[in-house]
Design a protein around this nucleic acid. Structure first.
Lengths: 202, 202
DNA sequence: GCATATTATGAGCAATCACTCGTATTTCTT
DNA sequence: AAGAAATACGAGTGATTGCTCATAATATGC
């Protein structure tokens, strides 16, 4: 009954620089496999091989295959949360429109950085047994947007935040799948939909 | 060089009623597994067991596991195409808004009928090696909407059709995941976004 | 009723899966 | 330099995978 470990998904905490590097290598190899060949190709043997690391090393830091997925999801989420929060802070004294633009831009850049990876992690999360920690991060993304919307008098901020996130994700995903390169154009089209949803004039 | 078989995904054409029933049973069992337990649980043994059929029977009608997925995807696509086309036919003499409403409604009902199944098939299709036939169906969905938009003077009808489909799918998917029951409310929110995208007044 | 096609069966195969464990190597501490 | 701790290794485990094939059961045509 001593202190609980800070990371339930990591079997052993890296104490030397080289083991931290190993963990990062494993995570990046996993990400590459997920984005290029999808969840079906995501096997522990494949990850170890791609990372240039033995399976044994992999299992020293991750108790299960799913733990890798969970950590990847958490990191992605945290990155998006950071981006959204910096956007909210910057937009506090600006108008609703300007702030929404910032959110859309952050979400779009975030997702189109590695579209295939985002897609795989998204599906994995919907299929995986519900992870409390991941769920909290998911909620807090919505909460950040919802609070910002609420501050500008938008009705039903929670629902609106969920809808806008879903709308943006859907269009970004399709853009990634279609091989869209003109990010600015896609961004503008998303804004049109978002403005319409919020009842703002174009 | 005789006539090519009508279905490349079916190993043997059912000739008796009972074998057709077997094929349907296999498809429905696959759908249930996909929607309740996801792609990872979708194994041929699991499908056969759930269908109450032997693996051997399964492989008499489907050359590979992926062939089942392909057929499920094709059927879903064809159903949506039929719904959209009936909507287009009915809306020929109505306004743009009314027609768009019909499209949104059809797409939403189609996806929320079995949200988990839609999600799994969607991801499977993005991961599977590109299937020409499936790609054609995907395109024709966009074409149907694009032509309708074009007829009402919407600029960039192809891109707009893709965007609206993606937007609707994203919001519907999130609604399904969230367990949203009020279909009418979700439909109305989607319409707000769509109207905004198209530059129509609410 | 009999021959022939059609359909159904499931034990079992090779391949692959997630994961373990005994051992070797490297780094840290002193 | 030497012992201890941390890290890396990879052959090998049992389980599961996609799928085959020899055989049995059923339906159809005459």
């Amino acid at each position: 009954m001593s202190s609980s470990p800070p990371f339930i998904n990591v079997r052993k905490q890296p104490r030397q620089a080289r083991s931290s590097a190993t963990v990062e290598t494993i995570l990046e190899a996993s990400a590459r496999i997920l984005e290029t060949r999808g969840l079906a190709a995501f096997t522990t043997n494949a990850v170890a091989e791609r990372a240039g690391v033995s399976v044994g090393s992999l299992y020293q830091y991750f108790p299960t295959k799913e733990a890798i997925l969970t950590l990847l999801i958490r990191r992605k989420r945290e990155a998006l949360i950071a981006a959204l929060e910096s956007e909210r802070a910057r937009a506090d004294h600006r108008g609703l429109k300007c702030m929404v633009d910032g959110f859309v831009h952050a979400a779009l850049v975030h997702q189109l950085e590695r579209p295939g990876l985002s897609r795989s992690l998204e599906y994995a999360e919907a299929t995986l047994p519900i992870n409390a920690e991941t769920e909290v991060l998911k909620r807090s993304i919505i909460v950040i947007v919802a609070e910002a919307l609420s501050m500008h008098g938008i009705a039903e901020p929670q629902t609106s935040a969920r809808d806008l996130a879903a709308l943006t994700r859907g269009m970004a995903d399709a853009g990634g799948l279609f091989g869209e390169t003109d990010l600015a154009s896609l961004e503008q089209r998303i804004r049109r939909a978002v403005y319409g949803y919020l009842g703002l004039g174009a």
